[in-house]
Write a protein that binds this DNA or RNA. Structure first.
Lengths: 155, 155
DNA sequence: TCTTGACTTGGAGTACACTCCAAGTTGTAC
DNA sequence: GTACAACTTGGAGTGTACTCCAAGTCAAGA
């Protein structure tokens, strides 16, 4: 629902990621982000300051690319940049922050669950509306009757 | 995932809506929108110019409130204001626009379906990550092994 | 040596959807 | 008659997440 680049484009398996990614362009292709977005994420501290080649160009390890991809998963399920930043900052704190990270992920998982439930509920309402329109279209005369019926149901 | 006001608050059954809603405050309570948002929607043409009382205060019929609530459903499932405006403009065109409205709703329904599928997919990935953290936490030594295993799966 | 292309930086601009504010009007309550 | 609440308007400001741009650097190729 967010702008989320087409799935086939970027890496979904570790094997597709070189051990060393030597340009921001490549990083962008692998993660599905734009180069500007990667720079922006680094600027706001969501991504750590990336290593540079001698000429100043960014390089990334496979693990770093994997980390970015995981962040895009969180973002794609509605986590804000600020929350992601918090999650990532804990990664820096090492294994002792694992329980905290676990509970963030578990909470987020619950949120996704509720989101799915919410979408399904509204899906049902929209389906009702679709049926309603289809009725009107097929039996233009029984229009009012169906409206009566509709008024007994959820809006 | 969007800011979506708490469900219990507003009307979900037609019976809860008076036949005539005589203030923007009441309209806001019934629809779950803020007064400012209702004015804003009217300003951008997403809602038609509401009838006013002699003193200029807005009034709404039950049907109009129902219409607003349906728009909030569309919004809550990711439809943009611009798309909703388009949908609503067709409502003005009368019954001849029903096939077009039908196809918009059907397309939107498909989008929600894909959205649910997308969330479920990522849910699975997050669950894997949670299991991974839990493993590390419970068996700190087998850490590397599990990382190896992880690297064979989806990121 | 010069050009080209891929990057770098800081900072400004954009899109969406509100959200807030100041100034004014109206109707009721005391 | 005056205070007050509940509205009205136009317009400015906010937050999130980018997106774009100008000016500069650097390495490789003709």
């Amino acid at each position: 629902m967010d702008q989320f680049p087409g799935k086939a484009k970027w890496a979904t398996l570790v094997e597709e990621i070189p051990e060393l990614v030597t340009s921001i362009k490549q990083a962008a292709q692998l993660t599905g982000l734009t180069e500007d977005t990667i720079r922006y994420y680094e600027k706001i501290g969501l991504l750590p300051y990336a290593d540079r080649k001698k000429n100043g160009h960014r390089i990334y390890s496979r693990e770093q690319i994997q980390g970015i991809i995981f962040l895009t998963r969180l973002k794609a399920t509605g986590m804000t940049l600020e929350e992601m930043k918090h999650f990532r900052e804990m990664t820096n704190a090492g294994d002792e922050s694992i329980p905290a990270r676990l509970s963030i992920l578990e909470e987020h998982k619950q949120k996704i669950q509720s989101e799915i439930a919410r979408l399904s509920d509204i899906q049902t309402i929209i389906e009702f509306k679709i049926d309603h329109f289809r009725e009107i279209f097929q039996h233009p005369n029984s229009n009012d009757m169906l409206c009566e019926e509709a008024s007994k149901k959820e809006i």
